[in-house]
Every structure is written in C-alpha cells, then in structure tokens.
Design a binder for these strands. Structure first.
Lengths: 344, 344
DNA sequence: TTGTAAGCGTTATCAC
DNA sequence: GTGATAACGCTTACAA
C-alpha cells in the first residue's frame, strides 16, 4: 500500500545518516556503533525495508547473478543440471536467470543480448549456434562464458565443462563389442554439436581399433529435441542387415526410439541390445532396465558455477574441465543371439 | 577489453546529446530527426552498446522480470511448467528468474526475500510453507503473487491457477469404481498442501457417494520429493487386505512406487490397477502404458504469466483460474481379477 | 564514529 | 528537434 521504504527512510527513522545505514547493510564496510546498528536494524524491521538490487548494481558494476542458457529444460538431463546449478549458485548467494533456446539460433541470439544488458557476471550455456559475435561481446563485457556439456571451437574465450564424450562413446562401443556385437546402430545428436561429433568419433575409432569396417548407414545424426528417434530406429530396423545393438544419445531419442521398438515388437536385449546416453529414474523401470551412461550433473554444475563466478585476468582463452561419466551396465545389453547373427 | 560503452559514449560518437540517444532507445518517447537517429544507431553498432538494465530499473521502478519459485525443477511436471513459463514470458519480452525451494520452508523464505529486493513485477510460485509475512511483504511491494498448482489459503492476496484437483481425484476414483474396484490405495502429497488435501477430499467424497466405507489405512500422505513412494506401496501391498487399485500423486512417487511393485512381482493391471497424477513421455513406455491424469502445462503457464504481469488495482484479493485436466485411460487399469477379490 | 556529497547509467521534464 | 539537468536508491571516498 504505502510505497517501499528507501535507505533514507530508514536513516530518518533511526536518527542517523544514510551512510550509517549503508554500513550496517554491507556489514564490514565501515565502523558503526553498537547503538546505531541496533536502531538501524530496528528501523529496517519496522519499515520492512529491503535494499533495491538495481540501485546497488548500478553502482557496483557486475551483479551476483549468472545466466543459465539451456537448450531445453524439458530434457531431464538439462533439468537436473538446472536444479544443481540453481542450488550451487544459491549456496554462494548468487542468483540464476534461466533462459531456454529450444535449439533455435535466433532465440539464442536474443537471449545473449538480454544477458549482455543484464551485465550478469557469468553465463553458463549449452550453445546451439555459432553466435560468435554475441559470445565475443559478452566476453568484452567482462562476463565469464562457460559452456557446459557442449561447446564451440569458434569461441575460444569460453571455459568448457563436460564429460569426455569421445571416451564415453568408446566405452559404450567397447562394451557392445565385447558382448560380440558387430553391427551397432549409433543415434547421435547433430554433428554440428561437439557432443554429436565427439561421440561419433569415439564410436568410429573404437570400431576401427577392433578391425571393424564402420558402416555409415548405421549412423544417424538427428536433433536432440523431438521425436526423430522413432524414425531413426525404424529405418535401422528395416535394413536387410539390421544392427544387433544400438546406442542412443539422449532421453528424448531414447523415449521415441524405444516406443518404436515396442511397436515393432522387438525384444530387448535378445533381439537388440540398447545403450542410452543419459540416466533417469524411470530408466530402471523400463523393462528391461537400461544400460546407461550417467553424467555427474552435480559435478558439472559445481564446476560451471565455479568458473562462471571466477575472475580471470587473461580472458582470451578459456579453461577446459573434464569430469568422468559413469557407465552403468544393466539388463538391456547382452550377447547377440544366434538368430540375429549375420548369415554371411 | 575496453570498458562497456555508456549512453554518453554513444552520444559523443554520434555528435548528439544523451537525451537524443535515450529517445531512439525508447522509440516513441520523443521526436528525433531521421539523420540523428541514423547516426545514433550507427554509433551504437560501432560501440556495440547495450543499455544497462540496472540503470533503467533504478529509474522506472518495477522491471520486466518475473520470479519463478518452484519446489523442484527435477520434477518433470515442474520442468515442463518452467519451460512453458519461460517461453510464454519471453514472447512478452519478460525475463524469468528461476529459484527452487526443494520443499524447504527456509529456502523458500530466503528466495522470497531475494525476489523482494529484486522488485520483480510478479512471482509465480508453488508455495511450500505458510511464509505469510513474506508473501504479504511481496504484495506490499506491488508484486503480483501467483500461486500455480498449489496455493495457500492464508495468503488471500495471491492469484491462483490450477486444475480442479478435487474433481480430478473424483474422476480417477470413479474410473476405478466403475471397473469394480472397492479397495483403492491413495498415495497423495502432504495434507499441508492444497493439492494433497483437495485430491484426498475428492477421493473420499467419491467413495462416500458410492456407499463405500473409506478406510483411512488405504491413504498415504507422503512428500512429493524423494523415494517414499516405495514404502507407501510396500506397506499397502503387505496388508491382509491389499488394495486392488492405487492412485499415485506424482512422478517421483510413481517411479519409486512402481519400482517396488516390480520388485514384489505384482502384475499391473491384473493384480493391481494403477493411476498416476502426472503425464510424462516415458509413461507410455512403461509396461503396461499408464493411465494418467494430464495437466495442461502450457495453459497453466500462460495464465500464470498473464496474471503475474497484470496490474491489479485492488490487490487485496486474488483471482482464481481453474483449467481442465485430461484423464487418459491406458492399460494400467482394469477390472480386479477374482483372485484378488476380497474373500469376505 | 558519523555525515556530506559525488557519482553509477538511465529516463523524463523542461527550456531553448 | 534538441540539450541541460534533476531525479532514481545506493555505495564510498573524504571530511568532520
């Protein structure tokens, strides 16, 4: 009803100057007598005074806010990441502005402009496009840029936090090879993303190392969002020589892919082994429980927040932090059955 | 590298006064000659100038920012809500500050204080506790408070957007009664939440209306977060007289509850019918596909943002908006089999 | 220990 | 059309 109290109102009520109030506000910033402090505190109570962030920010430059620019909160992996980032940030008294891009370069560019005008101290992002100019501008504004999960080679000033995707793909592929699989379907994200590329590289390298001729027809690069997992799965199954195992990049791809599998009546793992690059609570619920690659979300978040908040004098080159993913073997992978072994 | 350009730098570069720059910035706010506008625009480009939100906010009071205070982003329902809210807000040029409370009253109180100091124009929240004072203070600051999904009776100034939980529970219960079930387990959220209460009320009222004596031992009020669904499920199954059907409030409860079901080797729906209050992509993947109550997230979000942004002169009493939930019958519900029909 | 006063980057109100 | 100039609420030298 009444308009918000300002620092002046508090000062008046406490019978001191605004400088004193400011000092008790920013605790260590100067001497205040016990009595004055008491009266100020009391006045703040009475007037239910709350300092305005905007005013504070105006003076003291960069704020204790970080931007979190995610491709898709609906993706459980990103949701968990968001949860962890928000928690981690909160524990350091930092706020998080969440924005989503839906994998749309235009939205991303817009979001970056807004973040720039906010003068956030750092941005944690899963980049979608090479908005090189925008990222650069952010850097010029002294905003730390941290890429998490994926990154852009064209933006060297950014820090990177991620799992070793190439190695993870290798691990998954090796697991299947050891079980005896020779034709492995690989559904990755777009090759325009580092995740898509690294995993594909790791996969192909592993095949090569085991003397297996990679068949490019077994590779599917589809968007992370959406239902294309079903089509990818379908086209893979319809081959004369269908794969005996498959690796899926994503929860969304897994859900739509598995749905197609079910429609086709394909049995897992007897007819097809399945590995998914993403863990979820329900993943165990699926029959059979899925073999998955688990990313340490908490850790990714902690490091990202760390970097986003860190001052870095020489901001021309970013740092790279790799954390370990955990491969969890459950029941969706097994040796290929004779029935599906190639006839050649 | 160089420090961010201010409005003054732009003015200098364009050879005009800051007033002119300000006018081209806020398009309609005054006359500017075409020539001047051109030069200013050019200068802004060259200096890659970005107006500072903080300064703007300082002047013009409430900002175009809303707070989104969720209990748990990890809950897919809330994640979808967040996604929709962010999208909806973006389409109106409004930013979203996301905060999570983890159902912890203390965290919630903290978050509310921060939001107050931010002078956000509105807050959309799934309240956890009766931080009545904090909510009131927010209202005093002219911040619209919108409760979504759940609400607090003790905060009358807030708007409410939600499904009709009582009716939804009724619908679910009636479905099961029609199939012939008589002993229905009901796992709800805490009775301290309106969702928990309304659904329980709806359920019990429906039983009563059908002349069925409600057994309070079939009711379980457990937290929305965490794994207590498993215990609830377990204790229900261990009864001499176990229910033939069960209603679960939540994805988290469903996941842990269903896991327990699987461990116990209970067959769905032949031995137990299951209804879940929440839809998810994987819900169809579960064998058998789950019968669910689907909340219209998009709509909830759209209305919430609407209200959060709306000016309301008489802010003493909030508005209430109910949207319709959709009950989707799939394969996890069926008539109870003779084998489990009570022997009495 | 306290108070005064000069900004911080914008917007908006005036005179010109 | 344009340009001074006074706010906005706060922090921070610097003086007292």
């Amino acid at each position: 009803m009444t308009k918000p109290a300002t620092i002046r109102d508090v000062a008046a009520a406490a019978g001191v100057s605004i400088a004193v109030v400011s000092r008790v506000l920013n605790d260590g910033s100067g001497p205040v007598s016990a009595g004055a402090r008491q009266r100020v505190l009391q006045a703040m109570q009475d007037l239910s005074y709350r300092p305005r962030v905007a005013a504070r920010e105006l003076k003291s430059g960069p704020t204790s806010t970080i931007g979190l620019l995610l491709a898709d909160v609906t993706n459980p992996f990103f949701a968990r990441l968001a949860d962890s980032v928000v928690r981690e940030a909160r524990s350091r008294g930092v706020q998080v502005v969440l924005m989503t891009t839906q994998e749309d370069p235009r939205l991303e560019e817009e979001a970056l402009a807004t973040l720039a005008s906010r003068r956030v101290s750092g941005v944690i992002a899963t980049p979608t496009a090479t908005n090189a100019g925008a990222w650069q501008h952010l850097g010029d504004l002294q905003t730390r840029v941290v890429f998490v999960d994926r990154y852009l080679d064209s933006v060297p000033l950014a820090d990177v936090v991620s799992i070793d995707n190439e190695r993870s793909a290798r691990e998954a592929t090796e697991h299947l090879l050891e079980l005896g699989h020779r034709r492995i379907g690989f559904v990755s994200g777009p090759l325009s993303t580092t995740t898509g590329r690294s995993r594909t590289d790791g996969h192909l390298a592993t095949l090569a190392a085991h003397g297996i001729e990679p068949e490019s027809e077994l590779l599917r690069n589809i968007p992370f969002r959406g239902d294309q997992g079903a089509d990818a799965m379908g086209s893979l199954l319809e081959r004369d020589d269908p794969p005996t195992a498959i690796i899926l990049a994503n929860t969304a791809q897994a859900v739509s892919g598995l749905r197609r599998l079910r429609q086709a009546g394909v049995k897992v793992p007897s007819e097809l082994s399945v590995v998914v690059f993403d863990d979820n609570p329900w993943t165990e619920l699926f029959a059979p429980a899925l073999t998955i690659m688990r990313q340490p979300t908490e850790l990714l978040a902690a490091h990202s927040v760390d970097l986003a908040l860190s001052q870095q004098p020489d901001a021309t080159a970013g740092r790279t932090l790799m954390v370990e993913a955990e491969f969890v073997v459950r029941s969706s992978t097994a040796a290929p059955t004779a029935a599906r072994v190639p006839s050649n």
